[in-house]
């Protein structure tokens, strides 16, 4: 029997997962039960549960429990994982959409005009390397609202890769293609939409893909700071509850959602890609 490359890779993935989980399970020292303890151990409090890294079986159990009822809401400190992730995605998409509304037209302008490029470049270069979380205190003070501040932080971290890639993509459109538009008497707007946009689209989408990745990284940290709701808050809250099972579970969920966001943009990227 011959297997395709993908089948071989899938089998290897499953084997690696199984081996990893078994090793993890085996590495957790078993807690002694009360019967196994000497009287002295019991008297000195040895019977109390020791906090430890939970084994994968426990995490899987938690995942089953959470995912079978993801949207329950039992008060501010006890909401289902679906609700928490929903809050985070809402914040990311809102901040991200606002960033796209600013970055794409501005990037187009910068890409089309060498003057605008030179004039705005120093600002971009200074603002770009700032950690988005560094904006948090200023945002909280000016906006006076933790929810909006988190969205602002997403906005500010998503904007740079989109802006730079849009400008770069637009500036790099081959002059031959622009000449095709010119010899066909296309107006400026028509040229922008029928020639420059499709020509620059792969670069623009790459920037958007980088941005969504960064935004998802940043939202966790931002929610740890602002609190209340969201997957980042959930991780921090479970840490405070010393519920490491939930912490590990939510870490996995962060990874899964991040992967889904990235593959959505990956699909978009393939849709606009072209070979020269």
């Amino acid at each position: 029997m011959t297997l395709s490359l993908n089948q071989k890779a899938a089998i290897l993935s499953i084997v690696l997962l199984a081996v990893g989980l078994l090793a993890w399970e085996a590495a957790i020292p078993a807690q002694k039960t009360l019967e196994e303890m000497t009287e002295y151990e019991r008297l000195t409090g040895g019977g109390a549960q020791k906090a430890g890294v939970p084994p994968p079986s426990q995490v899987l159990g938690k995942a089953w429990e959470q995912l079978s009822n993801p949207f329950y809401d039992a008060g501010p400190n006890d909401k289902g994982i679906g609700i928490q992730i929903g809050y985070s995605i809402y914040r990311v998409l809102t901040g991200y959409a606002l960033a796209a509304l600013v970055a794409l037209p501005l990037g187009f302008l910068i890409g089309m005009s060498p003057v605008a490029y030179k004039a705005l470049n120093p600002f971009i270069q200074v603002l770009r390397p700032i950690s988005p979380l560094a904006w948090m205190p200023l945002a909280l003070f000016i906006i006076q609202d933790s929810e909006a501040s988190a969205i602002f932080v997403i906005f500010i971290c998503s904007i740079w890769p989109m802006l730079i890639n849009t400008a770069f993509g637009v500036a790099g459109v081959r002059s031959d293609w622009v000449n095709v538009a010119r010899t066909h008497e296309l107006g400026a707007l028509k040229t922008a939409f029928t020639v420059i946009l499709p020509a620059a689209a792969p670069t623009i989408i790459t920037g958007m893909r980088i941005s969504i990745g960064i935004a998802w990284l940043v939202i966790v940290a931002a929610e740890m700071l602002v609190g209340g709701t969201g997957i980042g808050y959930y991780v921090w809250n479970e840490w405070n509850n010393l519920d490491l099972t939930s912490v590990i579970f939510s870490i996995l969920m962060i990874g899964v959602v991040g992967m889904l966001l990235d593959s959505a943009f990956g699909a978009l990227q393939r849709a606009v890609a072209y070979a020269e």
């Binding site: 293609w177 000449n179 095709v180 689209a201």
Partner: peptide, 8 residues
């Protein structure tokens, strides 16, 4: 000379 077709 280089055809200048729109590749997409």
């Amino acid at each position: 000379q280089n055809y200048s077709l729109l590749p997409w």
